[in-house]
Amino acid sequence: MYIGTAGATEKAQWNKMDPEKRKALEASGMKAWMAWGKAHADAIVDQGRPLGKTKRASSQGIADIKNGMTGYAIVQAESHEAAARMFENHPHFAIFPGDSVEIMECLPLPGQ
């Protein structure tokens, strides 16, 4: 899960940046992201997508909420540690103002 917050965007002064500078940084970030994808193409099961607005359904009903998840990708690796290492210095936080990438294992369903 790609994690990003308003605080990280503010810290990077992303929205206060000169528009031309931000546009150039976005272009270099996307180039780096594509290079990351090519370098890990054999491990990427689903390149993912950006995530939009969030709703929560619970016993109290449906509500609009906010969380830090901004996108996802699905990768396959020899171990949880190996999957995490794939995201070291990822453009999401090395170039763009993302906070981090959280790596979670997809576990088998109980009883299967």
Rank of each mutant, 00 (worst) to 15 (best):
M1Q: 06
I3P: 00
G4V: 01
G4F: 01
G4E: 09
T5P: 01
T5G: 11
A6K: 09
G7H: 04
A8W: 10
T9P: 00
T9V: 10
E10R: 11
E10W: 01
A12I: 08
A12K: 10
N15K: 12
K16F: 04
M17T: 11
D18M: 06
D18E: 13
E20T: 14
E20A: 11
K21W: 07
K21E: 15
K23F: 12
A24W: 04
E26L: 15
A27R: 10
A27S: 08
A27F: 13
A27H: 14
S28D: 15
K31T: 15
A32Y: 11
M34D: 14
M34F: 09
W36I: 13
K38A: 13
H40N: 15
D42L: 10
D42A: 15
A43Q: 15
A43L: 02
I44N: 09
I44T: 12
D46V: 02
D46M: 06
G48C: 04
R49Y: 08
L51Y: 08
G52M: 10
T54C: 06
T54D: 05
T54A: 12
T54W: 01
K55M: 11
R56S: 10
A57Q: 02
S58N: 01
S59Q: 14
Q60V: 00
D64F: 02
I65M: 12
I65A: 09
I65Y: 05
K66V: 14
G68F: 10
M69Q: 11
T70L: 08
Y72T: 08
Y72V: 11
Y72A: 03
A73V: 15
A73W: 01
I74K: 08
A77R: 02
E78Q: 11
S79F: 09
E81S: 06
E81C: 00
E81R: 02
A82K: 13
A82N: 06
A83C: 00
A84G: 13
R85Q: 13
M86Q: 02
M86A: 01
F87A: 07
N89W: 02
N89D: 09
N89Y: 09
P91F: 04
P91L: 12
H92A: 04
F93H: 09
A94G: 03
A94V: 05
A94Y: 06
I95H: 03
P97F: 08
G98T: 04
G98N: 03
G98D: 01
D99N: 13
D99A: 13
S100E: 07
V101M: 12
V101Q: 05
E102N: 04
I103R: 03
I103D: 00
M104N: 14
E105Y: 00
E105F: 00
E105C: 01
C106S: 03
C106H: 02
C106R: 03
P108H: 03
L109Q: 04
L109Y: 02
G111I: 04
G111R: 04
Q112P: 00
